[in-house]
């Protein structure tokens, strides 16, 4: 029988520092479980972002780097090129990946870099206090779009999965959501598949996760989850966008 709340072996026994209802802790745990299930802890390398999840290395017990803001895919590339046998993943927020690091992620995907990216889309810059992100929804109020994002002034939300799917180098691209327990299980399946894509050497893999930032959204955790389902999923459809071509 499986104990639902047992800690994955590849995680430290430690309380996370995230706000109540934050999505980061959930996704960390999924990653820990997937590493356990694939039994790859001893050959897995993580690259932490700059953002709320910079301390992911305090929770996941494998070799890790902490990259500069947005540069995790480049750091992962350097590592993977030296050690092609290691499993290298980056974990990045939407400011990190979709704004300052947009160039690094596009080119890593386009090179078909054999790495896996877990991309947390919470529609704001969390760590710096809820400023507008490239993924912020039209009309969404943030600390730097106080009367709501207006696309004609601030542009449109960036759809990373759709963008990266069209690149020949990307192998597996999927988007999931943390809006319900079923969807969380689906995210786990996606993340596992992404790691498997890398293990099989099939190319670049990325899973975008629509995630909650109750603190900066000004919503209690339950409502935040509902907001992901109703608002974010409407703009960012969930599902698998690109499947790897098996050897």
């Amino acid at each position: 029988m499986k104990l639902v709340f047992s800690r994955p072996k590849s995680m430290f026994d430690r309380q996370t520092h995230y706000c109540p209802g934050c999505g980061h802790g959930i996704v960390h745990r999924i990653i820990g479980e997937v590493i356990d299930e694939l039994d790859i802890r001893e050959r897995t390398v993580g690259v932490a972002p700059v953002g709320c999840a910079v301390l992911i290395y305090d929770y996941i017990n494998c070799d890790m780097y902490e990259a500069a803001h947005g540069r995790a895919p480049a750091v992962a590339t350097g590592c993977k090129r030296v050690h092609p046998d290691l499993i290298v993943f980056t974990y990045q927020g939407d400011g990190d990946l979709a704004s300052i690091g947009i160039s690094e992620i596009i080119h890593a995907a386009n090179r078909g870099e054999k790495i896996t990216t877990i991309f947390i889309n919470n529609a704001v810059y969390g760590m710096t206090g809820g400023q507008m992100a490239p993924t912020t929804l039209p009309g969404q109020r943030t600390t730097t779009s106080p009367s709501g994002r207006t696309p004609d002034k601030e542009g449109y939300p960036i759809k990373i999965c759709e963008m990266l799917s069209i690149l020949d180098g990307s192998a597996y691209i999927a988007r999931g959501s943390l809006a319900s327990p079923q969807k969380i299980l689906q995210v786990k399946r996606y993340i596992k598949k992404a790691f498997e894509t890398q293990i099989k050497g099939l190319g670049f893999s990325l899973v975008e996760v629509l995630s909650m930032c109750p603190t900066n959204w000004g919503l209690p955790p339950a409502k935040a989850q509902k907001w992901v389902e109703e608002r974010m999923e409407a703009l960012y459809p969930i599902g698998e966008f690109k499947m790897p071509k098996e050897g």
Partner: peptide, 26 residues
């Protein structure tokens, strides 16, 4: 060895960060 032309100097130096961190002479 590996030669890789990066998309920018910003990316290139961070690839160096990754490769140097991985123990290589880079």
């Amino acid at each position: 060895g590996v030669y890789l032309q990066a998309e920018s100097e910003v990316a290139a130096i961070n690839m160096v960060f990754g490769a140097a961190g991985a123990g290589a002479r880079v």
